[in-house]
Amino acid sequence: MKSSVSRLSLWLLLTPFLLWIVLLVLLPHLQMLRVSFQVRESWDTIAWGIEQYQNFFTESYYWRTFVRTGVMSLFTTFLTLIIAFPIAWYIARLARGRSKGILFLACLIPFWASELVRTYGWMILLRESGLFSSWLQALGWVDGPVEMLYNDVAVIIGLVYNGLLFMVVPLVTTLDGMDENLVEAGYDLGGGHGTVLREIVVPWAMPGIVSGCIVVFMLTLGSYLTPVLMGGKDSAWFTEQIFTQFITRFNWEQGAALGVLLLVLSSVIVWLGLKISGQSLRKVMG
């Protein structure tokens, strides 16, 4: 009797989670997978096939954008890690009391505005008639207005900015839990700054590094607004292709195939990352 009651309450507690997983994650993706293998023969007949996937490999524009997006996302993730680590170190180890909270808040503040507003903020700074351009002119370092938008650098700046918080938080959490004596022992036994960082701090922070990298990589790979608004003609992002297929061309089958490919790419890279760093998903997310 008692066990059936507790089992019922367990199921009731699990219901929202299961609904979420099944309705919002599992079903749409299965549907997308199905659609991606449909080939439209005429307006009302459908066959099964891999035509959309063949399109992807034969059309160089698709797979080149795909590889570019993957590589630039990896680079963005790495850059975010390099920038976030000292910030996280400062917040976790050096800041005390109030300043710790304020610094954390400072990292959070940009997220009070929407991604759109944040991106426009960067555009105001970087565009031809923008702040940086006019400063450079005022300082006399350049002769005319400088366009800093619509290139890969601008896209990466925007993406790093968007990802920073998601890297800082897990890093602060892991670094916070590190015994100060570990660092001191590292020096005491003859290590220099580089050795202590490489042999003691980074291995300790590895779960935080990996979980931050996974989140930032996925966010970056799947981001849409920043590359569209800040990138130029030559810096297309793969999500733009998916958008075009679904919305502009109304070719859902092709869009679904590209979506599945993006999902496969992110899964493979995350899996590789976990393998290489010797971490498990349970340890990183637990």
Partner: peptide, 30 residues
Amino acid sequence: VPPNRRPVNMVFQHLALFPTMTVGDNIGYG
């Protein structure tokens, strides 16, 4: 002289063994 150049070593109150290394690597670190 900084701590890593002193002929002095310390056993910490909570030992501060490196948790990410094996016993052998801990001892081999120095």
